[in-house]
Design a binder for these strands. Sequence first.
DNA 1: CATGAATGAGTATTCATTCAT
DNA 2: CATGAATGAATACTCATTCAT
Lengths: 210, 210, 210, 210
Amino acid sequence: MTLDTQSIADSFVDKPATKRENNRATNQEAILSAARLVFAELGYGGTTVRDIIRRTDLATGTFYNYFDNKEQVFLALNTQIGEELRALLAQGRQQAETFEQLIANNYLTYFTYYANNPQNYALTRSNRGRDGANVNLEGPQVKAGLAEMQIDIEQAMALGRVSKVDAAMLTAAVGGVAFSLLDDMMQRDTANPEAAAAFATRLFMSGISS
Amino acid sequence: MTLDTQSIADSFVDKPATKRENNRATNQEAILSAARLVFAELGYGGTTVRDIIRRTDLATGTFYNYFDNKEQVFLALNTQIGEELRALLAQGRQQAETFEQLIANNYLTYFTYYANNPQNYALTRSNRGRDGANVNLEGPQVKAGLAEMQIDIEQAMALGRVSKVDAAMLTAAVGGVAFSLLDDMMQRDTANPEAAAAFATRLFMSGISS
Amino acid sequence: MTLDTQSIADSFVDKPATKRENNRATNQEAILSAARLVFAELGYGGTTVRDIIRRTDLATGTFYNYFDNKEQVFLALNTQIGEELRALLAQGRQQAETFEQLIANNYLTYFTYYANNPQNYALTRSNRGRDGANVNLEGPQVKAGLAEMQIDIEQAMALGRVSKVDAAMLTAAVGGVAFSLLDDMMQRDTANPEAAAAFATRLFMSGISS
Amino acid sequence: MTLDTQSIADSFVDKPATKRENNRATNQEAILSAARLVFAELGYGGTTVRDIIRRTDLATGTFYNYFDNKEQVFLALNTQIGEELRALLAQGRQQAETFEQLIANNYLTYFTYYANNPQNYALTRSNRGRDGANVNLEGPQVKAGLAEMQIDIEQAMALGRVSKVDAAMLTAAVGGVAFSLLDDMMQRDTANPEAAAAFATRLFMSGISS
DNA sequence: CATGAATGAGTATTCATTCAT
DNA sequence: CATGAATGAATACTCATTCAT
């Protein structure tokens, strides 16, 4: 976290960060960091702004200098995770030469990411906004990620690397398996991303018939 | 549901309910019905008891003559749907002679049920607040349903009808595909349960490799 | 209790109690009896009409056929105890030939009554009305009892049986000692009305100077 | 109380409170002051937090910035009075050289205190709901005060200044007479603490026999 | 900008009382 | 008269947000 802040500050090379700017970045990061913990613990609905600010050495009013309300912090947090993860996934797809590699890379990346960031897993699982949207399946980041994957899937179909089926359904299925196997993996005593990825890949490549 | 209504109607013929009993049943149903709508619209966390009874011509206090609190109505609603659906699914599995039939029957039953009960779909998609639990994946009814399915899957494996793989993972995958294809189907203009079921079945039987 | 009801019914000799009249007396007594217990347990403020009726096999609505509200039952209960006790006290005073006897008789009667009726003691201690009145010291029954005692005290003074002091103060003091020694006695493991009465009598007759 | 006010005023001179600190003290006092009035009027049970805050120009939520609930304000109020009074009483006993002086000092202090603070008298007379406890006789402050007095009484007995009797009973009697004579005094047109104290003292020293 | 007290709308729940049956 | 469900006013308490310092 210190690293992040540092690097953000460093990027203003020309006009070196004044004390104030530094504080601004620090405070914002402090709020995000506290929010990540609290959302993971109490869930979105159960979390209050005061819960977040309490885990900070800031005052309640200060929160509103950085975010409009609870939803915005939550969004920022999810955007952060989403972008990070989507970048990793896209990279994995680009390096794939076969459809199987594409699938395998993506699952391994996905399961490994959360196995290494259980904090973010908990956050992802705590989702829900006033509108009843399930961020797990419907959050803007997830939608974006699935849309990107669907494009690559369609491309693979066009290239004949995979039999032509309903691309939307296939994408949905890939996502659904990802979510459910992730849950299965995370509630086991020791997470085994490789096993989960292998299972999912085999399923998509050849099914499970005997 | 049609059956229920019918049997209620029948009971008026044989043993006419007193006006009071009648009223009691009517009110209970009114609350449940209103709750179904509101939960679907606002989600579990976003729903207040007042929201529910506002959609009723009953007084606030009356709510508490029927349910202890918001959670209890939600539970009642989900139990109702869950039991109904699980019964249908179990029946479908029992009638299956091959693993493919088992999978196919279940998916068709599942997708058809929600296609015919969009109201219940919306409810199922609304979720829990406080504890961050996602009813879609973790509600007691869903858990029970998946547990039942896992038993049948293990049996199929024991009988050699399907290759032996990690039963928990397979069950999770079956569930994940169900949820994600359901979402995909429901947000299309016209739901096509047969297509979704066929897609899912083929996926599990032979994968999608070209 | 059965005796009471019986005797009330018996008093209508000419027009022997119909089943309904009998029920009316029975129900009223059932409510009073339940109320006595509940008030003693929960205090006046903590008691609800439903608490009372719950200890009865009557329905909520029935309560209002017998009493206007909680306060009225409470009043009825206190009136009952008050009249009973006042009668005993008056009798004791009438039999006294000296002032000492008067004091002694009254204290012994008073302490003995509550020692034998701890239920009523608890009730008496639970007092309070919406107006903040302390029934212990200010309830109408207590006021009446003290007024009666004051008359006898004034008479004793007129007869020269006791030195002339402010009769109101003396009456208040007699009452205050009664209440405080009663509390002291009731919270001991075994109540000793004789000891308490002896102490109080000696105090009023000759003080406690060495 | 005069002293307190004075010292608060003094503190403004030396270390002028910030406007915020000042306001905080003002609000706290406003709540306590309003509570004193309302409790006196409606009794503890009859008082609601809204009743208190309504007599203030503060908002409902503000109450909870200062006190956890109704009970806490009540406690604060009683603690305040109790400590003040107990200090005065203890001082009076320490200055006494004979048992008569001890009794006389205490009664005079007690009656004078309430004669000068009728507001506090009313508060003291208001009482507890839920548990049926009578603050007049059983509040923690009163209990503490009586316990302190009992110790001094036992000491006086040990020193032979007063005949040995049951110390608990004697303490209870002293308390009972204090409460009842206080009530008697306060409901007269003009309170006469000296007369009440003289009466009580004489009673305890030599009784009232002719 | 930071602070943290003040605000007051909002929510769950209770309970005395009424009234149709 | 008995019943017990319906009523809705009332209460305690929370929390997002504002704003004077």
